[in-house]
Amino acid sequence: MGRTVRHLFVAGCVLLWLIPLYLLVVNALTPATEYAGKPEWTFQGFAFLDNLDTAWNVAGIGDSFQSSLLYAVVCGLVAVLVAAMAAFAVVVLPIPRPAFWFWLIYSGTLFPLQMFLAPLFGMYADANLYDTRIGLMLVYTAWAVPFAFFLIRNHMTTMPPELTEAALIDGASFPRIFWRIHVPLMKAGLGAAFIFQFTAVWNDLLLGITLSRSPDVQPVMAALTTLNNAYSSAGPPVILAGALIVSAPTLVLFLVFRGLFLRGVTASAR
């Protein structure tokens, strides 16, 4: 009886997730001229490429897509590298009060992002970083470090300290130990952290609409709001086609590296 209830519950959750996805796909394929003003439950044609062309070229979502790809890849990689170095310092290096440094870095995940928006906006305006790619890359990298640090640090604590002791006896320096021993052994954890941070940066809306406004600087989620407001007369199918193509990178990334992601999360949870 209990197993049946669990299966029904899981099936219900899957159904609740699939219904909106089905509506998204069906209405993204619907020709904008044939949209009746309410969600379509059956296929009315195949106009996805026309809808996507309007969203990508006319509304300019293509520039924002490329910007978000740059932000997610570069900021995710830099954040993971910085987080790995910080985790190595806290776990391996003989620094005083490692628990203090852990909580100091990890506290970046404990405060709501909204409380930083007003100071960030003022600071960016004074430093001429507002509406610049470098400005967004700086804040995305700093925002991504604390959680990546948490994951990588947890993974690093599972590694036997005898590895470091043996390397030190052989005369290896701490940088050599980090790059030659810890990084190769933490590939799964580093990969999982990167996937998390890529997804977080890619899906960001709040920082994007606060710190940028130009189409070639704005991240893609902020561009979707512009598409919804400025091109609402084109019809929901155009907006939904843009939303569908925007959701593809994170889905593809997870499907391609799901094995690495699961191994990394499992190792970090031990």
Score class of each variant (00 low, 15 high):
Q44V: 15
A118C: 06
V252C: 06
I239L: 13
L23N: 01
L224R: 02
A200S: 14
V80N: 11
E40I: 10
T199P: 11
G208P: 11
S68A: 03
I245H: 03
S214M: 11
H182M: 14
L117D: 03
R213Y: 15
L70K: 12
D131N: 06
G12P: 05
V91I: 12
T141H: 03
A79F: 03
L8E: 05
I95P: 01
S212V: 05
T199C: 10
S107K: 02
L205S: 09
T132S: 00
V256M: 10
A59K: 06
L110V: 12
A222K: 11
T42S: 15
L16R: 06
F178I: 04
R6G: 11
Y231A: 05
P112I: 00
W41N: 14
L81Y: 15
A84Y: 04
H182K: 14
V256Q: 07
G189L: 06
A118R: 14
L93T: 10
G259W: 08
D204C: 11
C13D: 13
Y71K: 00
L224Q: 11
T109N: 10
M1H: 09
A166R: 07
F100T: 11
F9C: 06
A127H: 06
S64F: 02
P215W: 13
F254N: 07
L24C: 00
L18W: 03
A193H: 07
S247V: 02
A230P: 01
G122E: 08
L168K: 15
S233C: 04
R3G: 12
W143P: 07
L110N: 07
Y124W: 02
M156R: 06
R133T: 06
L151P: 03
R263M: 07
P94H: 05
Y106R: 10
L77E: 09
N57G: 15
S214N: 13
V238C: 00
G2Q: 14
P31W: 06
L205C: 08
A11D: 01
D63Q: 14
L70F: 12
F198I: 10
A79M: 05
Q218I: 13
A142T: 08
F102L: 12
